[in-house]
Design a protein around this nucleic acid. Structure first.
Length: 362
DNA sequence: GATCGAATAT
DNA sequence: TATATTCGAT
């Protein structure tokens, strides 16, 4: 075979352009297709190799994905062309030539980016618009937001449980967050919910050193406990008998949020308990008994969270926390304890919990 | 060893 | 401040 595709990353753009040229030269459509297939396979192979490092090499992924998509699209076109081969070959070929030109200009843009121009993101993002037809599931590192609508997800799973008429914007927000949980995004990109819309914000990493980026790669993606998630958390918490009875594992299992880890729940639970403790001086409880985590762009006012909780488990959750003015007592006293019987945990553990609770909460 | 809560780090 | 990580206890 004469498929001497040099996949050295440095030359990738040039190579792809040349590939397309080569393919264009071949007359037999079948051969075109097989060539393209081969190129695609190689690129995909390459992509698999760097898959592990997609956080460190988001732009490499980007390049590869784009190249693959281009080639695939090309193959698709040739196939279609092949299908209607007998009819109007002339037109098709003309179109193809035009496409080739597009390819070249596209590759040029890539080239620009590779040089290190400050416009890199722009020049790269442009070709993305072209590939609406075939979204690659691996392209997690480029623009997660575009993929949002296609992902139903764990977050959807609990939505019915929350049982509240959602505004569209909120759905977007939840989905975005969910996605951010499930797929690691490049370190410099974060999803920032802002007044009903998601913006992709570039954050200047204060530590751009290579070693730092490696460190970041090892670090967990920060989970944003947005109101929806927290509501769900609260609901589950109540179902499990309250914040001092429910264990992180139980909560996590009950929440059924994909990607949610025990550690995350544990951490959030800890924060929640802390907050309760802070606001449960015997004399004065929290204003409304309901705590929701603050997070950036969080407009608490327009979210009907009390409704949600009330609609779902009125007596439990709201009761529990609205009477939290004397929560300290109720926790140690009858309420929480009696509920803790529901928990699947054995008695011994309960005793432990109580012991600790008394220790801590007094 | 799994899980927990608290303390500490980021 | 919010979340992640670590640590000691169970």
């Amino acid at each position: 075979m004469d498929l001497s595709l040099d996949l050295g990353l440095v030359h990738i753009s040039k190579t792809v352009a040349e590939c397309l040229k080569e393919v264009a030269k071949v007359k037999d459509v079948g051969q075109k297709l097989s060539k393209l297939d081969d190129y695609v396979n190689r690129l995909e192979d390459e992509r698999r190799k760097i898959e592990v490092f997609r956080r460190e090499l988001p732009l490499c992924m980007l390049l590869l994905n784009d190249a693959i998509l281009k080639l695939k699209g090309e193959a698709l076109r040739y196939k279609e062309l092949n299908d209607r081969a007998g009819v109007g070959q002339g037109d098709g070929i003309e179109e193809e030539e035009g496409e080739m030109m597009n390819k070249k200009s596209w590759m040029d843009s890539v080239q620009l980016w590779k040089i290190g121009d400050s416009n890199q993101m722009d020049s790269v993002s442009e070709p993305k618009q072209q590939r609406s037809e075939e979204e690659d599931d691996r392209s997690t590192c480029e623009n997660p937001i575009q993929q949002l609508p296609t992902r139903g997800g764990a977050f959807m799973a609990f939505k019915p449980t929350v049982g509240c008429g959602r505004k569209e914007e909120k759905e977007v927000v939840s989905q975005a967050t969910e996605l951010s949980l499930m797929t690691p995004s490049p370190p410099e990109l974060v999803l920032a919910p802002s007044r009903g819309s998601i913006q992709q914000v570039k954050v200047q990493t204060t530590k751009p050193q290579p070693p730092a980026s490696q460190l970041q790669a090892n670090k967990k993606q920060r989970r944003c406990w947005e109101p929806e998630l927290h509501k769900h958390f609260m609901n589950v918490l109540d179902e499990l008998g309250g914040p001092h009875v429910a264990t992180p594992k139980q909560i996590r299992e009950r929440m059924q949020v994909e990607g949610l880890t025990n550690d995350e729940v544990k951490s959030h639970l800890q924060k929640y308990r802390l907050h309760i403790r802070k606001h449960t001086t015997p004399s004065a409880g929290p204003a409304n008994g309901l705590w929701t985590p603050k997070y950036e762009g969080n407009n608490r006012d327009d979210t009907p969270k009390p409704k949600v909780l009330q609609s779902n488990m009125e007596s439990e959750s709201m009761g529990g926390f609205s009477r939290s003015s004397n929560e300290g007592e109720s926790m140690e006293g009858g309420d929480e304890k009696s509920e803790s019987h529901d928990s699947s945990k054995g008695g011994t553990e309960k005793v432990n919990n109580e012991g600790r609770e008394i220790d801590v909460w007094r």
